[in-house]
Simulated assay, not measured.
Amino acid sequence: MGRANLTPAVVVAAAAELADREGFDAITLSALARHFGVQTASLYSHVRDRSALLDSVHELALGELADRTAVAIGGRAQRDALTALADAHRDYARQFPGRWAALQRPAAASTVHSDAAGRLVTLTLAMLRGYQLPETELVHATRLLGATINGFLALEVSGNFGHREPTADISWQRALSALDIAFRSWPTEGNP
């Protein structure tokens, strides 16, 4: 691909593909320059630096995950919506391991305030509101949901569930059942 075809979106997409193929830490400007057959310096007109590139991959992954989540949870509520949201995350982690790794890094302020992050948060909160949780409790419920999904997937991706029966799929369903019960019986504010 020649230099004339490079845009910020093309460079970020190539970085995401590199992350999925070789791991998130493989994203470097020199690796991308080799991929495009250009000098590393020529990429600086499309991305500020490696840190900005990693932030852009993070934002790309948030947007893709938001799109998948929207389709998955549409028209569903409570346990069905919870399962659809969690499965969308799990499928994304399996299909795009490098992009999933991007989601596990601390988000830059620009990423936190991005449209992609806003859409994913809005979808997550909509799913949780289906449980009739008090607004004051949504942050706590979101943290529990994120910790459960991300913790499970981190252990699964690293192979820590492959040494014992039953399968991780059964444990995944148990975890979602536990979350469903927790959200259905969530304590009200001031009633721990």
Rank of each mutant, 00 (worst) to 15 (best):
D49V: 04
G190P: 02
S171L: 15
V57Y: 01
T148S: 15
G23A: 02
W186Q: 01
A31T: 05
A9K: 09
A16V: 03
A70S: 06
A178D: 10
F96W: 11
S171R: 13
G130I: 06
A86K: 03
A14P: 06
Q78Y: 05
R129Y: 06
L179E: 01
I73F: 01
Y92W: 08
L60W: 02
L125Y: 09
T167R: 14
L128Q: 03
Q132G: 11
R48P: 08
P192A: 12
E135Q: 14
G74A: 14
V121Q: 13
A4L: 09
W100Y: 15
A107G: 08
A61S: 00
S114V: 05
G130A: 03
L176E: 01
N191W: 09
V57F: 01
S45M: 12
S110L: 10
E137K: 11
I149H: 02
T122R: 12
R174F: 12
A141I: 09
M127R: 05
L65K: 00
A101H: 07
E135C: 07
T167C: 11
V157N: 12
G162L: 08
T148L: 12
G23I: 02
R34K: 11
G146V: 10
L32Y: 04
A93Q: 04
M1H: 10
E59T: 12
A66Q: 00
E64I: 04
L29K: 09
V157S: 14
L43N: 06
F183K: 04
R94Y: 09
R50E: 15
L179W: 06
S30N: 14
A70H: 01
R79I: 07
A84K: 00
L43W: 08
W186D: 01
R105E: 15
S171F: 11
T7C: 07
A93M: 05
R105A: 14
